[in-house]
Write a protein that binds this DNA or RNA. Sequence first.
DNA 1: GCGTCTAAATTGGAAATTCCAAGTCAGAAG
DNA 2: CTTCTGACTTGGAATTTCCAATTTAGACGC
Lengths: 167, 167
Amino acid sequence: MVTTKQAEPREPASQSEARCQIVRTLDIIGEKWSLLIIRDAFRGRTRFSEFRESLGAPSDILSARLTKLVDAGVLEKRAYREPGSRERSSYHLTESGRGLALVVGSLVQWGDTYNPYSGGKTSVLVDAVDQRPLSVAFVDDEGHPVATDEAVFVPGPAAREPWEPLR
Amino acid sequence: MVTTKQAEPREPASQSEARCQIVRTLDIIGEKWSLLIIRDAFRGRTRFSEFRESLGAPSDILSARLTKLVDAGVLEKRAYREPGSRERSSYHLTESGRGLALVVGSLVQWGDTYNPYSGGKTSVLVDAVDQRPLSVAFVDDEGHPVATDEAVFVPGPAAREPWEPLR
DNA sequence: GCGTCTAAATTGGAAATTCCAAGTCAGAAG
DNA sequence: CTTCTGACTTGGAATTTCCAATTTAGACGC
């Protein structure tokens, strides 16, 4: 039970309305285990027990994270029934969740590039159709790749104070 | 004080040797505040006091994170001297740290796409040369963009067990 | 010397989060 | 009605984060 705070209207798990996109995003996927759950979801895992075994995360935390990701619209809860068993829940990436492929992909790519594991890669990104290797990159509005060091973050309309773009 | 462990040869802060690239990456940038420090670094902030004021993070945590990011090779510690002041430290993205632009960019893009803030974007990604807007995307080995839902993660050589690629 | 100033930490203790082991719940099978 | 099993809860310990107060180390004036 989640300690029913007295008073406190409490919307249905409202997301943070932080100005910064990164803060809002990390409020959803930034806690311990969340991104690993999502990684596992991209590997086709869907059940509580699969996540539990693969991650080794505490079951109460896993439960809380799955609920949070469902509330945030990243995962979707479905029912399944194994023959001879009662109905249970499974968790599937939503459209929004599949959108995190770029986040997961860039984390994987950074790890491969700057902190490679001597034994090789556990996970490789390929085209679903022809299996050719893919990478994550910046592209301009015409779909042409742009070198990483040519991209800069500049203040948008919601910025409270300007900053000097790096480089 | 950081409890000087007796003995313990101590390599230069050995990273986790986890098989999974995401685990290795999150071991470096997955703790609270780390990615926001890096975001700020991309906004040109370099000093302890700048990070402190901009983030509102506790100073002990900020100190610990900066040290960890320096040890991990993401940030680099430099000395600067304000006229009439003693020498102090500033923190700058290394090559490895600048490589995190894709991670930060994909987090920003996901926030914009799936959890937009009513007031607009705080941060926009543009080409440093001609200021045209950029996005983060999957590209094949010839530099052609590939639709997000066409990318899948498949087991690499270091995978301990195979999995069904999603979709 | 001595006291003051300031940015960058460090420290002690409270609060929140995570971990772990054990327990509950709900249907299915016997 | 007893057992089994996957999906959670629960209580309490361990760890991490938070907060306020303090320390540190040079620069400055005296």
